[in-house]
């Protein structure tokens, strides 16, 4: 599938002034042309957490499982609240999609995730002597 779109050259002027786009219903992700400053092009080695999120996503969507499509992934991320969307990193958005879609597809329930999180948290706190 070809890329969605590519931008070339010069920062745009203010969007409201120029495109009449202020009248459009826009998703939180639909930010093309918003003032945003320069792009941070610094690279970093993926962290262990990022690698794990990446691996889980690939496994859920591999030939064997095919639990959901790219478009469903995007829809889930695009429906994050503006505050969560702005505050989340790339892989945090993936984690949000994983969690939401695993529940939506009936693989896990909220209760199962909450139960496992509580168990992991208790184990961590015991191991680190926090309680």
């Amino acid at each position: 599938m070809p890329l969605a779109g590519s931008l070339q050259a010069r920062p745009p002027r203010s969007v409201e002034e120029t495109s009449g786009r202020a009248n459009m219903t826009r998703g939180v992700h639909d930010m093309g042309g918003d003032p945003a400053g320069p792009i941070d092009r610094q690279e970093h080695e993926p962290t262990l957490t990022e690698r794990r999120i990446d691996a889980m996503m690939l496994l859920m969507r591999d030939q064997k499982r095919r639990l959901w499509l790219t478009d469903e992934n995007r829809r889930t991320i695009e429906s994050m609240s503006p505050g969560d969307y702005e505050a989340s990193s790339y892989y945090q958005k993936w984690l949000h999609a994983l969690r939401g879609l695993l529940i939506e597809k009936g693989v896990l329930t909220e209760a199962e995730i909450a139960e496992r999180l509580a168990a992991v948290r208790a184990r961590y706190e015991t191991a680190s002597g926090k309680s």
Binding site: P2, A4, S6, Q8, R10, P12, R13, E17, T18, S19
Partner: peptide
């Protein structure tokens, strides 16, 4: 599905602020 090319000056109402070869493409 098509690739469409737009002139930046038109997209952002630049009134000549962008050169004609400044373009944006989208699928």
């Amino acid at each position: 599905l098509y690739m469409i090319k737009f002139e930046m000056d038109h997209v952002w109402a630049g009134r000549g602020a962008y050169a004609r070869h400044d373009t944006v493409t989208a699928d």
